[in-house]
Amino acid sequence: MCCDWAISIRRACGALNFDRSTHHYTSRRADQAGLERRIREICEIRVRYGYRRVHVLLEREGWGTNIKRTYRIYRDLGLQLRNKTPKRRVKAKLREDRHMAVGPNDVWAMDFVHDQLAIGKKLRVLTVVDTFSRYVPVLDPRHSYRGEDVVQTLERVCQKAGYPKTIRVDQGTEFVSRDLDLWAYSKGVTLDFSRPGKPTDNAFIEAFNGRFRAECLNQHWFLTLADAREKMEDWRRYYNEERPHGAIGNKVPISLVNSGCATSPPP
């Protein structure tokens, strides 16, 4: 307006009812790129530190910032700790974005399915699926499961099928156990936990469990535990070697695992 109408700043501000002090204000805020970079570096190393502990470290290093500024930058960078992780869970995946599996044994998904024998005795079936090939390395029914039983089953299967890089699981007691965390740590496997109450975080295994229940569990009576294992193993081999899967171009899962379409490894 000053240039177009050749008037002073005082008259222009008066016409617009705009405070001249606001017009003349110059920000004195220092460049915070370095501070942002340091906060991100701290959080990459200390993944369980909240903004208060980050601020303490910044004070020790002489950054001279107040805690409100630290919190604002911490929040803007998206570093909030949204989920509490149980103690001793060393191999939990934290503050990392998920990536699509790029090959077999890259990402597995694991969960439990409940059923019962014909006499009414309960069954718990450990289901595992490879999210890249949709290959099912194991279906293991038992009357009850503990963390050490999950480790035993995984170790037996992985010795034949190979160890995955990541396993997606929910917050079940068997999956947050010390036994499974120690096994994952020793084998270099990352446990990627779903958020509580968010089954869509592990959608691959949820979709598989629906097919497993509709095509196997609802189609059979299981007389004994041995009978359940036999029928589930037959269905697992059918699923891996014969059943076309729409998500992988109507191929069979085993074709993405073995180039020669070899049969599934024994349980």
Score class of each variant (00 low, 15 high):
residue 96 E to L: 12
residue 238 Y to R: 12
residue 60 R to Y: 01
residue 98 R to A: 10
residue 140 D to R: 05
residue 43 C to S: 14
residue 23 H to T: 04
residue 156 R to T: 07
residue 4 D to E: 15
residue 158 C to A: 13
residue 141 P to V: 10
residue 259 S to Q: 13
residue 264 S to T: 15
residue 71 Y to C: 06
residue 192 D to A: 11
residue 29 R to T: 15
residue 162 G to S: 04
residue 193 F to T: 06
residue 216 C to Q: 00
residue 12 A to Q: 02
residue 32 Q to I: 10
residue 206 E to V: 09
residue 74 Y to E: 09
residue 36 E to R: 15
residue 250 N to M: 14
residue 238 Y to M: 09
residue 52 R to T: 05
residue 31 D to R: 06
residue 267 P to Q: 13
residue 259 S to E: 14
residue 102 V to A: 14
residue 253 P to G: 06
residue 54 V to K: 01
residue 151 V to L: 13
residue 231 K to I: 03
residue 249 G to W: 10
residue 192 D to N: 09
residue 227 D to W: 01
residue 132 F to S: 05
residue 113 V to R: 00
residue 69 R to F: 02
residue 202 N to C: 03
residue 173 T to P: 12
residue 104 P to C: 08
residue 62 G to N: 04
residue 193 F to W: 06
residue 5 W to R: 15
residue 231 K to W: 01
residue 199 P to G: 08
residue 194 S to Q: 04
residue 247 A to Q: 13
residue 54 V to C: 07
residue 226 A to T: 11
residue 56 V to W: 10
residue 215 E to Y: 04
residue 180 L to A: 04
residue 103 G to S: 13
residue 92 A to K: 00
residue 15 A to D: 11
residue 203 A to H: 03
residue 71 Y to M: 10
residue 57 L to W: 00
residue 14 G to Q: 15
residue 60 R to L: 06
residue 22 T to S: 11
residue 238 Y to K: 10
residue 63 W to N: 01
residue 142 R to S: 07
residue 101 A to I: 08
residue 57 L to F: 02
residue 146 R to I: 00
residue 104 P to N: 04
residue 65 T to Y: 07
residue 42 I to S: 00
residue 82 R to K: 15
residue 257 V to M: 11
residue 44 E to A: 12
residue 10 R to M: 01
residue 62 G to I: 02
residue 203 A to K: 04
residue 249 G to R: 12
residue 43 C to A: 14
residue 110 M to H: 03
residue 33 A to V: 12
residue 114 H to K: 05
residue 112 F to A: 05
residue 134 R to W: 09
residue 42 I to L: 15
residue 86 P to L: 09
residue 51 Y to V: 07
residue 43 C to M: 05
residue 48 R to F: 09
residue 231 K to H: 01
residue 155 E to D: 15
residue 178 R to C: 03
residue 76 D to H: 11
residue 209 N to K: 08
residue 88 R to S: 12
residue 109 A to P: 02
residue 258 N to P: 01
